[in-house]
Nucleic acid binder design. Structure first.
Lengths: 337, 337
DNA sequence: TATGCATATGTAACCGGTTACATAAAGGAG
DNA sequence: CTCCTTTATGTAACCGGTTACATATGCATA
């Protein structure tokens, strides 16, 4: 069943049926009604793939994230979904699991799919393959929007948070609480948030004339397991830190996992501040101080930005950056008892 | 740039180029190498949409869930993604937000997209529109797999958990702990898990000769807000329950939200058991007893089942049901102190 | 040497829409 | 009454692949 079949039933041409379906061009009202009736009767749904081929527009937006199971990203996606559906776009979802090869693989697939646009939180800000591919996309007319992580030397548009400033304030809170031995479990040094949050940490310590200690700066990967191990190492140092700054929500959970297993109490044995809230902990009023932001809104913003580019047919980025607001919410875990 | 352009460059026909790309039919190795070189040089990626139109197969699988921000579903999706990518399928994601109209809207879109298959957690088990649409899909050769929620009178294949039995055990734990005044905050009565978990609750009380009290059975919607309100109402009853059974993870969070705000302590002021774990609470060893299962695995199973149907070209369901294992993990919140 | 099969490649129709262009009728202006 | 514009509809090419069918060659077998 296709538009030609419908056309035959009604006794018009396929062009007329197409016009009715798309409400384009001139169609006599009487004809229109007959066509609509035939479509209704045949329970006909036009083939979006054929339409895409013809119009060179898939009405699908690719969304590439590093970890859907991370509540930050699932909230972001949830926000994006609402805007997308209101604008008749589908979301084609890819989860890289922070793996570069998989990111490349997805970008390859995305290219074949002739997606209308792409929203991506890249694994690394230094990955040339990804960068070149994204720039290529924009050159081909497929706009790109970055979420949360930038790409070096690219001036791609994106929606971010002021990582360095936010981390600075988080660390500052620890300093104000009296800490001098403050450690950080970083994110990957290849990702912008990883790097910038570390930058904020260092800036805070320097501003307060606290010496940077190499062994207090340990590298994580934004995942629970490694953060858990790093915490263990930190607390087993001859001169362990009295406070830890965790670079994202998964990192916070890794720290908490170790503390919990060792029956160490936050605020007594160790203090901490984390980046990104953890909703269920907020609900039970678990006193973890975190830097918070509206993830869902970040999703809205990103999708809205992409659709804006799409509707203005401006595929090229111009280094536009939206920064969503953040808040340092102190709940006591930064204190020393 | 298309296969005809490549063909021209090499001096062969488009059919040969197509054969090289798809590794189908006979192609002399020498020719093959020349074609591959031309593809490489032109940085050519074949148009998947044209391919889809021609083969009537989009290599995309629609996934419709009621709430991605719920960690159960984000884990399920994460599991599905891994299997999908290994089998060269894309995931087209739709989040209904538990809204029927939106579900219908998505199913309509899905139909136009000519998806290869569909995995859905329907909002309601009674929705005729959804049911008919899904059956229609299978009749058209698009296999369907249900996740977590069944559809009445449909014999669609799916991956579920033994809701009634699991809920029974959860409630039984409360009874063993000495409770007699046990309330339940249900899920929607129109969803299978909602209904069956209530069934399990009732069965447990009956088996232990505990009278069912109307006012202890309050209806929720699997969301935090309503569960919060229901908890408030329950605890303000003249004769309040001493324990609550929460029908899903969001419901548990709603209960906890109220308890926390009122500074009520679990195990002292009220006891509870919830359905579905909450990972971050487990990490901090928050002593909430829950019925647990491997959500990611449920995602694997569902996607594997769909791909199995796809590869056997059997679009029709045969009422095949996989049940993932569950565990009642008691951590103390079921006790009375 | 004739026959048959495997190998290799090309031709062209087809998938199901969209749309530029052609054609024609109707209505309004001069 | 002629000319122009607006309305209405059809024809056919096009989007970029796939693939049935036709054709041709090489080589083995009888």
């Amino acid at each position: 069943m296709n538009i030609r079949d419908i056309a035959k039933k009604v006794g018009v041409s396929s062009a007329t049926v197409s016009r009715v379906i798309n409400q384009s061009g001139y169609v006599k009202d009487e004809t229109k009604q007959k066509v609509l009736a035939a479509i209704e009767e045949a329970d006909f749904v036009p083939n979006a793939i054929a339409r895409s081929l013809s119009t060179r527009d898939s009405s699908s937006i690719g969304v590439i994230v590093p970890d859907i199971a991370n509540e930050f990203f699932s909230s972001v996606i949830s926000g994006m979904g609402e805007i997308a559906v209101n604008n008749q776009y589908n979301i084609v979802l890819f989860d890289t699991g922070e793996m570069q090869e998989r990111e490349h693989q997805y970008l390859q697939m995305a290219e074949g799919q002739r997606l209308s646009g792409l929203i991506i939180t890249p694994v690394s800000e230094l990955d040339m393959v990804t960068r070149d591919k994204l720039i290529q996309f924009e050159n081909k007319g497929i706009p790109v929007v970055l979420v949360d992580r930038n790409i070096k030397n690219s001036n791609l548009d994106g929606v971010f948070v002021e990582n360095a400033a936010a981390a600075y304030k988080g660390v500052e809170a620890l300093i104000h609480a009296g800490h001098r031995k403050i450690a950080i479990i970083t994110g990957p040094s290849t990702s912008m948030p990883g790097k910038d949050r570390l930058k904020g940490y260092k800036a805070a310590l320097m501003d307060y004339r606290i010496e940077l200690k190499e062994e207090y700066i340990v590298s994580g990967d934004f995942k629970i397991i490694k953060a858990y191990e790093r915490t263990k190492e930190l607390l087993q140092l001859p001169d362990p830190p009295t406070a830890i700054f965790a670079s994202n929500n998964q990192t916070s959970l890794g720290v908490l996992k170790y503390l919990t297993e060792q029956k160490l109490k936050m605020g007594r044995d160790i203090s901490m501040v984390g980046f990104d809230q953890i909703e269920s902990l907020k609900i039970i009023d678990y006193r973890l101080s975190t830097i918070e932001r509206d993830a869902k809104k970040q999703g809205y913003e990103a999708m809205a930005m992409l659709i804006d580019k799409l509707s203005h047919k401006e595929s090229k980025s111009s280094g536009r950056k939206i920064f969503v607001p953040y808040q340092v919410v102190l709940r006591g875990s930064e204190l020393i008892k």
